Amino acid sequence: MVLELQREAYQQQTSVSVLLRKAYTLSRKLKVEEFTKWAELEMNGYKDNMDELPDYRIVYGETKALNPYHGYIPAYFPTEYQEILRKRKMPPPLTEIELYVKQGEEKKGNLLYKYSSETQMTFKKMSKSEFEVSLHIPVSQFNTILDKVRNIILEWTLKLEEEGVLGEGMTFSAQEKEKAVKSTATIITNIGTMINSQLQQNTENSSQTLKVEGFKMENLSSLISELEKLQGEITDPALKQELASEVEVLQSQVKSPKPKMGIIKEALMSVRNIAEGTTGNVLASSIQDQVMMLLASLGGS
């Protein structure tokens, strides 16, 4: 079973999702709990376990605005926030990642991520434009996720073979199970390591650009309204209180005749961390985008 899985991982003819199910079965038989847990997360997705999302499931794209006359044009933000705005975490099950790759290949190598309607409104206010902004992610970024999972499985089976863990048919001895647990430790430690990959820059229709203007207090007021809604949805008392404190700080700055940008910036960064910790909440996801836009405008002011 080990050598069969190793051969399939090497030859690359078997889909990664099928390889993953076989690796999951193998890890269950060998009672390698850590590898089993990783395989389960890859099969079922990380939506409820975002704190365990490995680095290789982070993808990067290029922000673009849709100009009705010139097509997609680059949308630029201050350098210190460009990386944050270009980054997306990918928690879906591996089968969905495979589907994204198929869709991307059909769409000339790029996948389009649309920001929420609330975020679009913030973009429009800041840029004084009606252009819709979206994130364009090269399909190669999703292929990198699949390649990483395939490589982890291949590396694991090679390690098992080196330790003499081959099994007889579908069964393994007690000694083989013990060796498997020890040899897997290194693999698990390295799973979170980031794979270096070059981002494909798509420069078509780039004769025009969209730039975000400086910070505006009305955009902060809109965010505060969204944060008050989020307060009602948070069930964790400590997190709820923390958010309430930051909202109070922001409200005081909105009312102040001389608002301090440094205080606003610090409060926004705290709000961003709170929103990131509220996994699985649609409103929190939208708020993260809005906060990034406000931080970007502060960076450019």
Rank of each mutant, 00 (worst) to 15 (best):
N143L: 10
M90A: 09
N202M: 09
L223G: 08
E83N: 11
I187V: 11
V271Y: 04
E34W: 05
E4Y: 09
P93I: 00
T184A: 15
S286G: 11
K216P: 04
S206Y: 04
F123W: 13
D147F: 07
L30H: 06
D236C: 05
P91H: 07
H136T: 02
R21C: 04
M50F: 03
F142S: 01
M1Q: 09
K148I: 01
Q208F: 13
V101E: 09
I234G: 03
T186L: 11
P68T: 08
L111H: 08
A296I: 03
P68N: 11
K128T: 02
E226C: 11
T189S: 15
K124A: 11
Y113R: 12
L53H: 03
I58Y: 14
P54Q: 00
K216H: 10
M90H: 04
L283H: 09
Y56V: 05
R28S: 13
V139Q: 02
Q12E: 15
E118H: 12
L112F: 09
I224N: 06
Y81L: 15
K64I: 00
N273L: 13
E42S: 04
T25W: 09
I137T: 08
G109Q: 07
L268C: 06
L66A: 10
K47H: 14
T189L: 14
E178Q: 14
M170R: 12
R86L: 05
Y81G: 01
K89N: 12
L66N: 14
I137K: 04
N196R: 10
M194N: 13
G61H: 09
G277N: 14
L166R: 15
V139S: 08
Y113W: 13
K31G: 05
V16C: 03
E168H: 13
A284Q: 06
P54L: 02
L243F: 07
L210Q: 07
E233V: 01
A244S: 15
L41S: 08
K229E: 12
I97C: 01
Q241I: 00
S129K: 01
S15P: 12
V2N: 10
Y76P: 03
P257M: 07
G232V: 02
E168P: 02
T235A: 14
M293R: 06
S183R: 09
Q103I: 12
Q208T: 04
K177E: 10
V139W: 06
Q198R: 09
E176R: 11
L160P: 07
N49F: 11
K47G: 11
K29E: 15
L135K: 08
K182G: 04
G164C: 05
E176K: 12
E226Q: 15
T279C: 06
N143H: 13
E228H: 09
N190A: 11
G164H: 02
M292G: 15
L250G: 06
P138A: 02
H70I: 00
L283I: 05
A275E: 04
N143W: 08
